[in-house]
Simulated assay, not measured.
Amino acid sequence: MIKAVFFDLYETLITEWDGNKKKAVYSTDELGLDPKVFKNEWDSRRELRMNGTFPDYASVLRDILNSHGMSIDPDLIEKVHQKRVWAKKIPFQDVKPEVLELLQTLKERGMKVGLISNCAPEEVSSWSRSKLEEYFDAVVFSYEVKVAKPSPEIYHIGCKKLGVKPEEAIFIGDGGSNELVGAAEAGLKAYHATWFLPVDFSNKIQGFPKLRSPLDLLNRVELAHY
């Protein structure tokens, strides 16, 4: 019997996208790097950003600039940092009603609810002020625990926080970072959240039950009642 439900954050509980466009866009052009070069440098540091090796966004920017022998202006770094914080705040302001209804129903049924998110500090700086926070019994941010999805370890950390065995828990996510495979390898039942995903992208991930809407979970999973 399932006693706990873990959720991914971005593109599962909240989304950065409005159709084909991001809700909030910011530029790093003032740093003086070609946007394509910056993106390549940014992407190459993803694992180190997610596992907390880089303690914050500013440290990533400094490292990128250092790698190109560029001067570092602390005020400029902070300006770009605040723009990113702003951009990451926007998705938290528009939580899908069905998501809140699902979380409320799970709590009413006595389920334990957890979050497992690959993230850096600035990406979740608005978490504690969001409508979501009150529903969660445990939150696992990758940068805090120094391990990221899809490592089974991060799922086991979540289970330990909630006091459940992996086989007593499910994980729901959009599938990024190979998180569904990681959850399954850790012993959890993994479900594919597709409500924020384009159909063609959703179909790229196979082998996991698909949830077409948040409330679809209630019809698909036998949950414990207390």
Rank of each mutant, 00 (worst) to 15 (best):
M111K: 00
G175N: 07
T194H: 01
R49M: 02
P150E: 15
L188G: 05
G52T: 07
A193L: 05
K189M: 11
G114R: 03
Y143G: 07
N66H: 10
A190N: 04
K96Y: 10
L31D: 07
I172V: 12
K88Q: 14
E41D: 13
M70D: 08
E123D: 10
I116R: 10
V85R: 02
E30M: 11
F92Q: 15
H156S: 11
W195F: 09
I77F: 00
N51P: 02
I2M: 08
M70Q: 13
R129V: 06
Y135N: 05
S117E: 13
I90V: 13
K160W: 02
S142W: 01
K149R: 14
G163N: 02
V60N: 04
I2V: 02
I170P: 08
E41P: 03
L223R: 09
V80T: 10
I90A: 09
I170Q: 07
L9Y: 10
K83E: 14
E144N: 11
S71K: 15
A120L: 03
L162H: 03
V80N: 11
E222M: 11
E108W: 00
D94F: 10
A138K: 04
L188W: 07
K88I: 07
N178W: 03
C159S: 05
D8K: 03
D216R: 09
P209N: 11
Y26D: 01
S125R: 08
N51W: 02
T53A: 05
L102V: 04
N20H: 12
I205A: 06
E167I: 04
F38S: 01
L132Y: 00
G19A: 14
W42T: 02
G182A: 14
D29T: 10
A169P: 05
D137S: 03
M70A: 10
I154V: 14
L103T: 01
F7H: 00
V25G: 00
